[in-house]
Amino acid sequence: PELLPSEPPDFEPEAPCANDDLSSTHDELDDYLRHVEQKFGTGLECGLARHPDLSRRMRPILVDWLMEVAADYRMHRQTLHLTVQYLDRFLTNTTLQVAPSMLQCYGTACLSIAMKAEEQRAPSLSELTDFSKDAFSRDDLKQAEIDVLVALGWKLAVPTVFEFLCIMFQRAALHLPEHFADLTMP
């Protein structure tokens, strides 16, 4: 899939925040995010085995399509990663059996929820059904949102690969210049 228009996320806001010294909270933040990841992460299996009607091929196709939608909305990367996290967790936790015809609808519901949590504006249901060329109805999507939220237990604040990497690279950026600069000295 084409690359998304991505800007680096703005971890250091221009204006100062309380407790802005990220370095001092690194360990605590790390521990917390890892704890959440362990508790709510889904592992490589992504819950697919729980749905006999779904095949392994379907997830990458769906994710590809979600990336396209994300590019169209110029969504932030974190939102897309959250979408996929919600999808995997939904498939892992739901008591419903997802039919192949409904997978795209659930994927879209995950996207809609992630956008509500992260983005400033969430698209309307009909915008989203248009995107899927009416593969499902607005009512299906509305119900799917609820099913997803119930399966997620409303736990929406979860770390993603993207977030972990941002934190790691940001921390690396604090030390790497020092390291490389020192290498030039001898």
Partner: peptide, 26 residues
């Protein structure tokens, strides 16, 4: 609950409910 025919096109579960519950849960 959302009703059909409201001024704004429906976007499913309201964003503020989503954020409020998502945050309160934590």
């Amino acid at each position: 609950p959302e009703r059909e025919g409201e001024a704004r096109p429906s976007s499913g579960i309201s964003q503020s409910a989503c954020r409020e519950i998502g945050l309160c849960r934590e």
